[in-house]
Simulated scan of single mutants.
Amino acid sequence: MDRISKIQGTATLFARDPDFDIETYSTFAFGSYFSEEEHGLVRWRFTSRAAPVAREFVFHPTQVLTDMADGSLLVEFTASGWVEMAWHLIIWGNDVEVLEPPELISILDEVRRGEVKVLP
């Protein structure tokens, strides 16, 4: 919406599906992007150094946090949006490891090398 420069009203009406629930729909995505092809289990491990800060984040409304014996933190949820996740994870540097899905592991590696050519 930050790039909208002009709006115009129309006579076209929109009727929301009465069975649509925004709370349920929003759990399918990480942030704003949803893709059936990218939807799946996400597992991240934060180092013991990053765990106290990561524990304070709500990465996703369905996340499950597990404190590991070595002091690291395991974060698990189901969502889509691999590139958006990689953009977020880059701020954690090497204090986060993606365990699942393999596609996100690859994308995060590409982001870290500066190879992803996608505008935010």
Rank of each mutant, 00 (worst) to 15 (best):
A86D: 10
S72F: 04
S48C: 01
Y33L: 10
G93Y: 05
V116N: 01
P120C: 06
E56Q: 13
E115D: 12
T66V: 11
K6G: 06
Y33F: 15
V83I: 15
F57P: 00
E100P: 01
E84H: 11
V83L: 14
W82M: 05
I105F: 03
E115R: 11
V98N: 03
I90R: 13
D19A: 15
T27Q: 15
T27L: 09
H88G: 15
E115L: 13
T24I: 12
D95W: 08
Q8A: 14
P18T: 12
E100A: 13
D95P: 09
A79G: 05
E76I: 02
V75P: 03
V83S: 09
I105N: 01
K6T: 11
V83G: 05
L13E: 15
F28C: 03
V83D: 13
E36K: 11
T62C: 00
P18I: 11
G71W: 07
R45H: 00
V42Y: 00
R43A: 00
S26A: 11
P101F: 10
M1G: 15
K117H: 10
Y33H: 10
W87I: 02
P101N: 08
A79L: 05
T27P: 02
A29C: 09
H39D: 00
E36Q: 10
A54V: 05
S32M: 08
D19M: 11
A29E: 04
W82S: 08
L104T: 08
P120M: 10
S32Y: 06
N94K: 12
I4V: 15
E97H: 07
E97L: 13
A50V: 01
S35E: 05
I90G: 04
S32W: 06
S5G: 13
L41N: 03
A51H: 01
G31C: 01
E37F: 09
L41W: 00
E100Q: 12
L13N: 10
S35R: 08
Q63C: 02
